[in-house]
Simulated assay, not measured.
Amino acid sequence: MAEHGAHLTSSGVSDASLPSIFEVLAQQSLSATLHPAIGHAVRVFAEKYPERLGVLVRYYDEIYLLFDTLVQSYYLKKHGGSFAENFYDLKRVPSGNVDSSVLSQRLRLRALACLVLIPYIKQKLHSLYEKLLYNMGDSGRRAFLQREASKRQKLKGLYLLCFPYASSAWELLTLIYQLQYMLRHGRWHSPSMHLSGTELRHVSDEDVVENDAVGLFDASWSNMSVRSRLLRLIKLTLNSAAVAMSTSLSVGVFFLQFLEWWYASDSSATSLTALPVPAPPHSEKLKDVPCSCCPLCRRERVNSTALVVSGYVFCYTCINEHVKRHRCCPITGFPATDEQLVKIYEQQL
């Protein structure tokens, strides 16, 4: 049925190798699924081993940026497209020169920047907006109009005011590109694709033949020197490792999509039975520390403050400085931020 629907949009740009809007949206959905799905898997493992894997949660965006850069650069160089595009048998060709099947190094770098940096920057800007909105509230948008506010507060208020409009403008521009592509009045399905200087096309049989691996022992093997043979062995070993990682990633996509669906359905489900409160974790760090003392300074607590992720109570200054410096609970090692500190007002009897 989707194939019949694709023929309804045959006006405008006519090219048999041009992918349909359904294929384009499918590869976009796959690309957008990887980041949260892998992130959930990392959080699951980090909860079991917080002291060892807690750093993966704190710097997940940067670690995923490095991982995504390596994967996408390999696929752009080897297959001429991103991982998600190659998964649906799509490739990139230079804009205005669709007969060329090879991307220059300059176009590969532009495509890599659009594939990796733009989603990373959007994620960071959205996270910053959510953090500022949580700290300043809705009234923070009017901070830049207040004379008594500092320059920093005015900039934060201006960001809170402008970000929703900028985000909506980007989404509207993306929708316009998709509508033009669907009606065959445009060659790009998104602004980032336009910025990359490339277009999407179907993978041809010639591309499959060109991407086949070169045999280890061919006619030139006997004429090679020992150094040339060693270099070829190293190159083929690296290529084999890359192909193995590519295959594993392709197979793992289905598992990650299932994991995301399972996590979404589990988080939205209503619990029918209330689970008992688990016992606090035991630690040798609390040995011989009275309940009324701070586990960090070992003195009587001042301005008692609880850390939400673990439930332990500290002095406010002690835990605030520790969390800002180490980004984790000093007792359990659970990842934590200063937003997860809750002051406790103890009634003096």
Results as ranks from 00 to 15, higher is better:
Asp99Leu: 08
Gln105Ile: 02
Leu109Cys: 02
Leu109Trp: 06
Ala111Ile: 03
Ala113Asp: 04
Val116Gly: 02
Leu117Gly: 04
Ile118Gly: 00
Ile121Cys: 11
Ile121Lys: 03
Lys122Asp: 13
Leu125Pro: 02
His126Arg: 14
Tyr129Trp: 15
Leu132Phe: 04
Leu132Ser: 05
Gly137Cys: 08
Asp138Thr: 04
Gly140Ile: 02
Arg141Tyr: 03
Arg141Asn: 07
Ala149Gly: 01
Ala149Met: 06
Ser150Ala: 05
Ser150Val: 04
Lys151Thr: 08
Lys151Val: 07
Lys151Arg: 10
Arg152Asn: 07
Gln153Trp: 00
Lys154Ser: 04
Cys162Arg: 07
Phe163Cys: 03
Tyr165Cys: 09
Tyr165Gln: 11
Ser167Arg: 08
Ala169Pro: 06
Glu171Leu: 15
Leu172His: 12
Leu173His: 09
Ile176Gly: 08
Tyr177Gln: 11
Leu179Gly: 10
Leu179Asn: 06
Leu179Tyr: 08
Tyr181Arg: 10
Met182Gln: 11
Leu183Gly: 01
His185Cys: 07
Gly186Gln: 06
Trp188Gly: 00
Pro191Met: 13
His194Arg: 14
Ser196Pro: 03
Thr198Met: 08
Thr198His: 08
Glu199Thr: 14
Val203Pro: 03
Asp205Gly: 09
Asp205Arg: 03
Asp207Lys: 01
Val208Arg: 15
Glu210Cys: 06
Asp212Gln: 15
Val214Tyr: 05
Gly215Met: 12
Ala219Gly: 04
Ala219Asn: 06
Trp221Ala: 11
Ser222Gln: 07
Ser222Pro: 00
Ser222His: 12
Ser222Glu: 12
Asn223His: 14
Met224Leu: 12
Val226Tyr: 09
Leu230Asn: 02
Leu230Gly: 00
Arg232Leu: 06
Leu233Phe: 10
Lys235Val: 04
Leu236Cys: 04
Thr237Ser: 13
Leu238Ala: 09
Asn239Glu: 15
Asn239Lys: 10
